[in-house]
Design a protein around this nucleic acid. Structure first.
Lengths: 389, 389
DNA sequence: CTACTAATGAAGCGCTCCTTCGTAACTAGG
DNA sequence: CCTAGTTACGAAGGAGCGCTTCATTAGTAG
């Protein structure tokens, strides 16, 4: 079922190129021998692979490191700067963008405000401004972009439309991928924002290295996303993670405990109420702490359901409220401890606001690898040949 | 991360052997050209691969099919009978076993009664009797067995111990894999029974071909198992699927609605009460139907949670109560329809009682493929060389 | 008996990887 | 400054795998 089709010799080379690239990307400049050891190939074969990669522009030689015994070894590095990726986070109140190299290293970041009720075109314009801001900051042009990956609120269909968005009404029904392809002359990827945040946590965040991760997006609206067997789980209709829609999970009204806390001053803006309560709880206010407790009682139901069902290695607390992790984490652990068969690690996100943007970049990097892995055509995007020496 | 190590030439051959075997297993005897088309290899290469497989005993030639134009093509088939597998289902009241060839085709089946409270050794003896029954029926000996795969109630650790079993008290803490290895001189695999049932459904049951499947084990005790991305999901501590432990899911007492139904005669044995109510519901008894409705209200909570979280293609209703699928299926669909974002297919198991046994066999077949795929040593189990011509 | 059809089997080629070995470049020590 | 030691380089030769090509063979159809 998996792969019924057998392989060609070129496929073997493809496999080996990929593993060389992965090794180089993971461990900075490497000598031939070091690379050979990592890929499991012999030195001459490694040389062959590296030469080929250098020719098409994926890899280049760097000066050897001096001060070693013996003849200095030639060193090679992944040419992370032969193309660039943009990750975009389309939230209800902000559009964030970051430009990264092919290593996923961020070179520039921008943020554009947007209002939940703003018209469609305003938000699209904000996206364009956010990206061109990144380009200006980093001194690149739109022609340098290989991929634009977008995380957006709402449910995203496989072809990149927004099926439904509760927090950004104008977004529902939009052919987001289509509009973005008009905007940018490169590959465009669209995904749900919580999922990308989960991906970022599993790639470079607190869940790095874990194969099974439950990501809890705690914010005004609650969300969830899953990494299963090291991969983002989308579901058959790309609607996975919507467990919060079930009333019995008690996520729909969970935030009300924070918003409706008695200590919140009347003049507080509705979107700041929960933050106020969390801040008060941190400074020890008993009324606020009680509200947080009830909030967590609700949150823990869905979290426990996920932990019991999937038995993840890690549960990550991300999203806006995870800034208050110090008042949320330990009580959440206690509640999960009571219901779980095997207690997972419970950790707070450390990537903060940029989580989704970083996830989008990681998603773009993954996509590149996937293309390289399966592409029958050229693994090399158009610009590479030009950029090569 | 996935596979950093590159490949050898022999690895390519390994890949191609595997895809040839898969194609042959899937589609009966094939001519060289047909096989070449399926594997994507050229005819001469296919010949080479097939010759090698024939030499070690995996494949053999069969007489050509007459009546075709042109020179008759040689045909080859997978030698499913060069080794045998046993699947075992250790339930609370029965031990079932089935012997199958390497295609997973069942050749013999047996059942041994056992009581939930019976001592450990009685149950182990029942296993031995069940297996030797299969061997006798099929005329094989224990030396013909390549793999024994077992599905048992309870939570199974990665090394094949039973961490906890609610329905078979004496089972808790048992080193089941260890005991079975003393019994059988071959590979021994141990897994949770619901998971194997799920696997069977996704391989040969109603969920065949679906990559994401939720399996609902409906019986006196409720269970769940997941197929994600075509593979059994175990979780980090192999404790996945235990969503029913959460009180808010309302699975723990769901069956009480059936057991405690007013129409059940007092003299009915406790384990038959639910069946009585289901039967009455089928014949239209309004009180029973009402009880079934309340039962499904509870069942649907957990089912909806799973469907929302995972967005599976199919939800399969299996386990003892699935015999009453005609009264359960449609009402369950209605309830899920109300809560799901994207409604999955909801289907009843058609494999019935043998579900777990078949799943165990499929699991053994999978395991064989996995070994063949990754083994650095020989893909050929000890007997194969002997059996070969 | 002849024409047609479809698969066979052998030969030759190209690609990928491997092992081996003499050579080159640099450091350490006298 | 020169020599010994160390490490990597690069070229050569060989083996395995898959591909294409083509004359040959074993059937069916008329």
């Amino acid at each position: 079922m998996a792969n019924l089709r057998g392989g060609d010799l070129s496929r073997l080379r493809q496999l080996n190129s990929l593993s060389a690239i992965r090794a180089l990307r993971g461990a900075g400049p490497l000598t031939l021998s070091a690379l050979a050891e990592r890929t499991g190939l012999s030195r001459p074969s490694t040389k062959e692979v590296v030469d080929e990669l250098a020719q098409v522009g994926w890899v280049e030689e760097v000066p050897p490191s001096p001060g070693t015994m013996g003849r200095p070894a030639r060193r090679y590095r992944f040419r992370a700067n032969c193309g660039y990726l943009v990750g975009i986070d389309i939230g209800a109140h902000n559009v964030r963008a970051a430009l990264a190299d092919l290593d996923g290293q961020v070179l520039a970041e921008t943020r554009q405000p947007a209002l939940p009720g703003a018209p469609l075109d305003d938000r699209l314009a904000a996206i364009e401004r956010a990206v061109s801001g990144c380009l200006t900051l980093s001194g690149k042009t739109v022609a340098d972009l290989w991929t634009v990956a977008v995380g957006t609120t709402g449910i995203v269909t496989p072809d990149g439309r927004v099926a439904y968005s509760a927090s950004v009404p104008s977004w529902t029904g939009l052919d987001l991928a289509g509009r973005l392809r008009e905007m940018f002359p490169c590959e465009v990827l669209v995904e749900n924002d919580s999922r990308l945040a989960a991906l970022a946590e599993s790639r470079r965040g607190v869940a790095r290295g874990s194969r099974d991760v439950v990501f809890l997006h705690v914010a005004r609206r609650m969300g969830a996303a899953l990494i299963i067997d090291g991969r983002l789980h989308r579901g058959f209709g790309t609607a996975a993670g919507e467990i919060g829609m079930l009333p019995e999970m008690r996520w729909l009204q969970a935030t009300d405990h924070l918003n409706g806390c008695a200590i919140v001053p009347e003049e507080t803006a509705p979107e700041d109420a929960a933050g106020y309560t969390l801040a008060a709880a941190r400074s020890g206010d008993p009324v606020a702490l009680d509200a947080v407790g009830r909030y967590l009682d609700d949150l823990a139901v869905g979290a426990a359901a996920m932990a019991l069902l999937l038995d993840p290695e890690v549960v990550v607390l991300g999203g806006g409220f995870s800034r208050a992790a110090d008042v949320l984490l330990e009580p959440l652990r206690e509640r999960l401890e009571r219901s779980c068969m095997r207690m997972p690690e419970v950790l707070a996100s450390t990537l903060g606001e940029e989580c989704v943007v970083l996830g989008a970049i990681d998603y773009a990097v993954d996509h590149l690898d996937r293309q390289h892995f399966t592409a029958d055509a050229g693994p090399v995007p158009p610009q590479a040949a030009v950029t090569s020496r």
